[in-house]
Simulated assay, not measured.
Amino acid sequence: MVTQQQYMEQILAKYNLKEADIVPLKKKRAVIEDYVRSRYGSKMATFYYSGSYAKGTAINLKYDLDLCIYFKHNAFSSLSEMYNEVYKVLNEKYPVYKQKVAIGLKYGDDNIDVVPARKIDERTDDANLFVTSTNGQIKTNIPKHKEYISQAKCRPTIKLMKIWKFRHSLHFKSFALELLTIKALENCNSDDLGEQILHVLRFIRDNVQNVKLVDPANSNNIVSDLVDQNDKVNMKNNADASLRKEQWNDIIW
């Protein structure tokens, strides 16, 4: 008889994102990076993968290759100039569209988000993003996000919760779900993946509508405030329904 730990391991294997899956996107990333470097040269500090792939929490049901361009702190006179200049340059080669902080780019059949960021200074990885909806700014730190996920040591459970979310057709921001899972597991004493999933589901049922999720790279960015209230209610109701199921294949499959 398969144990719940073994069942979870089978689910993880089923939806494991293999390196071969990501190779085509990596090649496109290299083309975009070369193009941007050719246009900005010494203004650039570095190029980061961001998003779930960079943090090691991606699954093959849904994944993307977000890119973050770190410009030097004196590269542009303003964040709006940076964002609009990068938008213009990318639009010379690709179909693009503006998002909250990213520039959506259509490359063949793939959609790639490119996020321009300007370093606060050259001694830190803190950087500011331009927020198109408010003409404001928000601080981020890509390496710190990666480090936070790594130190939490719960990537398998995060992946399982993303699979659960996808299978139940729920809309909930990926970063928020990562933070929610980590917070839920703070008081979990079991290494069994099945027990961890049940623990997270109970936490969602009881707390998702009111829990405060803070960006580890920016204490002023309350990630939970960016999640629609209806999405929180749907998460709560689906978590409650899942906890009432008797078979694992009715909860996550």
Rank of each mutant, 00 (worst) to 15 (best):
S174D: 14
M161C: 05
L179S: 03
C154G: 01
T181P: 03
N187I: 03
E186C: 00
H171T: 12
L160N: 06
Y148H: 14
I163Q: 11
Q151C: 03
S169H: 15
K144F: 02
F175E: 05
H145C: 10
K146T: 11
W164H: 13
L180G: 08
I158Q: 00
Y148D: 07
K162F: 03
L177C: 04
K173F: 08
M161H: 04
K162Y: 06
P143K: 11
T157E: 00
L160P: 02
R155I: 15
L179W: 11
T181Q: 00
E178Y: 03
S150M: 12
N187E: 14
M161I: 02
I149V: 15
C154F: 01
K162G: 08
R167F: 07
F172C: 06
F172A: 07
L180W: 02
K165M: 02
Q151V: 09
P143N: 10
A152R: 01
K159I: 10
P143C: 09
K144I: 11
L185S: 13
H171P: 00
L160M: 08
E186K: 00
E147C: 03
F172K: 00
W164G: 07
H145D: 11
W164Q: 09
A152G: 08
A184P: 03
T157R: 00
A152D: 02
S150I: 05
P156E: 06
K153Q: 13
C154S: 04
K146I: 14
T157M: 04
A152M: 10
S150C: 01
C154I: 01
F166N: 14
E178I: 06
K153F: 02
P156V: 04
E147Q: 13
L177M: 15
P143A: 13
L179V: 05
L177R: 11
R167N: 15
K173H: 13
E178N: 04
